[in-house]
Design a protein around this nucleic acid. Structure first.
Lengths: 189, 189, 189, 189
DNA sequence: AATGAATGAGGCTTCATTCAT
DNA sequence: AATGAATGAAGCCTCATTCAT
């Protein structure tokens, strides 16, 4: 069975994305997992600690996975973009938009931690920028004359916004959404 | 000079977008504007009233303006898209992402109010869907075989995400961002 | 009738001397005065604010009164000592040993406030040192060859310890205690 | 090397004198000694047990030592006073004012324990009263017509207050302070 | 001898709100 | 139009303690 700690982290991700950091109380978390408030503190020391644990839980895994895609020398830039979109959308579907959580809520972290996570966030974004660069090099027209950072932000905006409106019971599956996003971006018909 | 009420609404938009509804307290708002907590309540009756005022302040104006664009029979769908992007980005730049605020925080409204605002929100989105439909009719390839609702969400995602990362002192002006977004979506080089 | 604020300060002095700062809770204070915990915070902003109010309430009055004794040019040093002992013992009897509270608990104040109060405390002690200096000048033998600061500390020790053991229903009245303290110090029989 | 138990008692004395009983937590104690909270409880059963251990550690030793001074038939009362002052000041310097801890904090002990320790405390004070009685008998003038209990309290006040202001790096050594206290009390020049 | 998991009670504080002015 | 007094509910956190290991 899943450890209390893991169940807490999962519940925290779910709640904080849905209700925002400030809108999520330790009591809610405790109730969700079926333990006492004190036990939540026992594991995370403080509310900030919960956010920290989420981020610690997210970035190492996500960056690693994305990096293997980006560093793969045998596939094209557009294929990498396609794979990234699948990866990111799966992430959004599974654990909500942890990335937006990162951006929106790192303000609640102490200076030191905030720096670390901003850095990791930039690293994550940087990997997507690399994909765009590769596309700009390989393709004749896609993303030509575009600011690569802006394209990256556009892509993340598209994907992350999904957290807000996506419902599993809706008409489109997560992979269909990823497909269509890919088509929109790559100008496929 | 701006009325106390107007200063309160502006401050409320700023704070609630930055810190989320739950993360913004009446005390903060009072301090920001330099009046007492009691006076804030005096104007809005309750915290929910503040959110209400923001929405009331936003939708009628925004919907009206967007509608004149959409209903204009003499311009093409792509041109409408371009104009919408300018309009939306200006909105985001000026008063932050009120739309995301709407989506994220209407949960704090009482049932009746929530319904009203969800409806207005859908109306706003619907206007953008109409633009996409016009494009699908006119153009040979753009947005062909795409779910028009998904395209709409993709566009809003792109635009609204700007609130999170856009800094006026950054390298791109708001209208340049709108331009590039238009190019990305319309597959212009 | 006494204001809520004044009643709170009096109750706080009483409780904090009896139970120490850490041992006194805002809830106790509220109950003692018959109001809610929130109201205590309403007046003092924080627990530290209570300590601050006590000190602000004590020092200006005490220093002023002691200063008029010390600056009186027409009375002898020993007479000043006698008067100080009466004054200090009355203080101790009335409002407990606020001075020891100051010394013991200023650690709970923020740096800035702590400095201010340490300074005032030194000023208060300094006035007693002046009395001892006058005695050393006038008298042939009393306090000769003694460290004036140590004598001062000895006197305060004697007086302040009273808070711990003095009971109004005990065999000695406050003025009798002051009298005997004076005799012990001045070597009167 | 010192046993964990002994290190805990030492740390507890230090912390509780500095921060008061209520202001000292088991967690602090654990951290100070570098072990876990559970281990502290393991040794003392409860927080009250810590106070108990301190007192048990203090009184038997202190009373025994003071008694040998008081019962010594071959020395004068004033000499006994002098020796007591040395003894008491050394105690204060070494382990802080455990006596004041006793008076201030025995309130936190259960009824039975409180009785025992109040009794021991009275016994300790009684030994000093005996010294004063001897002085009143032998000397012609010292402490004549004074309430012997009040004199005792005055002496303890002087000595115990030292805990609050004494700093090893200050201008006076512990034995010099004892000397001057003796002179002040015995009216020596 | 020593510890981690878990908790209930309580402490400080924030907060939205009511009321009287 | 604006505010201070007062509060109940809730939030974060500390703490002493129990239990199993």
């Amino acid at each position: 069975m899943e450890s209390t700690y893991d169940r807490l982290v999962s519940a925290a991700i779910k709640l904080m994305i849905e209700k925002s950091y400030a809108g999520t109380s330790i009591g809610m978390l405790a109730e969700e997992v079926g333990i006492s408030k004190s036990t939540v503190i026992h594991y995370f020391k403080s509310k900030e600690g919960i956010l920290l644990a989420i981020l610690e839980n997210f970035f190492p895994v996500a960056i690693k996975e994305l990096r293997t895609v980006v560093n793969n020398k045998s596939i094209s830039g557009t294929e990498k973009l396609r794979r990234f979109l699948y990866f990111q959308m799966k992430l959004v579907a599974e654990s909500g938009d942890v990335l937006t959580l990162v951006i929106r809520e790192t303000r609640y972290l102490g200076e030191e931690h905030r720096k670390i996570y901003n850095q990791r966030h930039r690293e994550y974004e940087g990997l997507v920028v690399k994909i765009i660069e590769q596309i700009q090099t390989e393709e004749t027209s896609l993303f030509k004359n575009k600011d690569k950072n802006l394209v990256m932000k556009a892509i993340f905006g598209m994907c992350n916004y999904t957290t807000i409106w996506y419902r599993p019971e809706g008409p489109l599956r997560i992979d269909e959404i990823a497909d269509q996003f890919f088509d929109i971006l790559s100008c496929n018909v």
